[in-house]
């Protein structure tokens, strides 16, 4: 019997200045991470509206990760602090709704941290894969 490996759907929001560049550096250095990760470029992690994350889960994403500059290094000085506070609230609310904490993450990745980017993605995909598919918020009407 052939077992098809379960492949989670991961949406990664990366800020233009640090994390997106970090992802590019992972590419330059050919540091592999699972293809399940698809990146959306945003100017700053603080552009990520909780609505986008809810939308992703509604459309069947299994995990959502937001990457931004390290605290103190934000291109816009304070954007990542907003992200940190907003996401802490959102994630605990999602947890309450049954979306496990492990499916959501905020990570600081600088433009110099290609290796950290790849390692973070490897770890995140593994963690999410271990939880299995996310059915909690998925709106099947969207699939019609």
């Amino acid at each position: 019997m052939q077992v098809t490996e379960y492949k989670p759907k991961i949406v990664a929001f990366c800020c233009n200045w640090c994390s997106y560049a970090g992802a590019d550096l992972a590419g330059n250095n050919r540091l592999a991470y699972p293809a399940e990760v698809k990146i959306i470029r945003v100017p700053c992690s603080c552009r990520v509206n909780p609505m986008f994350i809810l939308r992703a889960f509604q459309r069947g994403a299994d995990g959502v990760i937001i990457c931004g500059c390290h605290p103190g290094d934000c291109h816009y000085t304070s954007g990542n602090y907003y992200t940190r506070r907003r996401m802490a609230l959102l994630f605990s609310m999602l947890n309450y709704l049954g979306i496990e904490k492990e499916r959501t993450r905020v990570e600081w990745v600088s433009a110099a941290e290609g290796a950290k980017f790849a390692a973070t993605m490897n770890d995140f995909v593994q963690t999410v894969a271990a939880l299995g598919e996310n059915k909690r918020l998925e709106d099947l009407r969207c699939k019609l």
């Binding site: 100017p43 603080c46 552009r47 986008f52 994403a61 954007g79 907003y82």
Partner: peptide, 29 residues
Amino acid sequence: GCGACTVACPSGAMDLKGFASAQIMAEVD
């Protein structure tokens, strides 16, 4: 163009050109 305000806005009035909410949601979809 950081977009901090777009998320803070409770009435959905604030949007960012080039990275509009509708565009990002289309990407998510």
